[in-house]
């Protein structure tokens, strides 16, 4: 992994950890986050299909989350 990629990763994770340290949203306030309209995984399959034909027309790849992560709201 290149040094710049590592730097970006550290900045990204650091920013999120910093946000996490500010406040934790209680479980009982996560009702809307659990709604299907907020679920990143809801569109994951469609995004993979779309990425397949977009990669055939564009020079870049990725961005749909790769192996992805949980929605952190269940």
């Amino acid at each position: 992994m290149g040094r710049s990629a590592v730097s970006r990763l550290l900045v990204a994770v650091g920013a999120l950890l910093a946000l996490a340290g500010c406040a934790t949203v209680p479980q009982y306030q996560r009702e809307h986050l659990a709604d299907p309209l907020m679920d990143f995984e809801r569109t994951a399959a469609a995004e993979r299909r779309e990425m397949k034909w977009l990669e055939a027309r564009e020079g870049s790849t990725g961005g749909s989350g790769g192996a992805g992560g949980g929605c952190a709201c269940n």
């Binding site: 994770v13 946000l19 986050l33 989350g65 790769g66 192996a67 992805g68 949980g70 952190a72």
Partner: peptide, 8 residues
């Protein structure tokens, strides 16, 4: 390889 962080 990928690393993903999801934050409320």
């Amino acid at each position: 390889g990928n690393v993903t962080a999801t934050q409320i």
